[in-house]
């Protein structure tokens, strides 16, 4: 019978106490936030060894451009034996932009962390081979950051690759998320020179 994820999360909270926030339940999923990003490897190792969370589904990163702390790294952890999964989040301020790696806990974290480094620029201390995975070595930017435009910026690395900005013709003609009201969300608000 599958264990409800809240049980595993309570065990983590009882072990680590104040480091872990109260679990949030939304749409049937349980999320906990780790307040000290430097201890994430410890928490993950505890989850794997003591609680049997042997399957890491995904590691994601979110860029809160303009907020502090800027980065959130999200771990989707699941346990095959218990048949449940939960989410562990941690915030990292922009000045640090570095997290301990969890590749020694789950091997699959290797490529996920390389992708986060490539796309967002968050480094992972202790990673065996932290290089770019989707873009090429020597590409100067981190594309998924909010201040990097969708069209891209021109770069040139002879013998390897070049990039030119894609012609967007004033588009994309979609609303910006999270704005307070409809006038701010409209695409026209962007044309008056506001940064999206």
């Amino acid at each position: 019978m599958p264990t409800p994820p809240i049980e595993l999360v309570r065990q983590i909270k009882s072990r680590f106490g104040d480091l872990i926030s109260e679990p949030i339940e939304f749409r049937g999923e349980v999320t906990i936030t780790l307040k000290d990003y430097a201890r994430v490897a410890e928490v993950c190792a505890f989850a794997k060894e003591q609680l049997g969370c042997d399957y890491l589904i995904d590691i994601t990163s979110v860029d809160h451009y303009g907020d502090d702390p800027r980065w959130t790294v999200v771990y989707e952890i699941s346990s095959l034996a218990h048949g449940c999964q939960f989410r562990l989040k941690t915030d990292i301020p922009e000045e640090i932009s570095e997290l301990p790696t969890v590749t020694h806990v789950w091997r699959t974290a290797d490529w996920h962390e390389r992708e986060i480094y490539d796309m967002m620029g968050i480094r992972f201390a202790g990673h065996p081979d932290l290089r770019r995975i989707l873009m090429w070595e020597g590409y100067p930017y981190h594309p998924l950051r909010k201040d990097f435009p969708l069209a891209g910026r021109p770069t040139d690395l002879p013998e390897v690759a070049f990039t030119r900005p894609a012609p967007l013709e004033g588009g994309p003609f979609v609303t910006t998320p999270g704005q307070p009201n409809a006038t701010e969300r409209e695409p026209r608000a962007r044309e008056t020179g506001r940064e999206s």
Binding site: V74, E76, V174, T176, P177, G178
Partner: peptide, 21 residues
């Protein structure tokens, strides 16, 4: 993985791709 701040577009959409893993 969808992180939404409301509205019609996602703030962050991550595709957990089986082939990548």
């Amino acid at each position: 993985y969808i992180y939404s701040r409301g509205g019609g577009t996602p703030y962050r959409l991550k595709i957990r791709s089986p082939s990548f893993v």
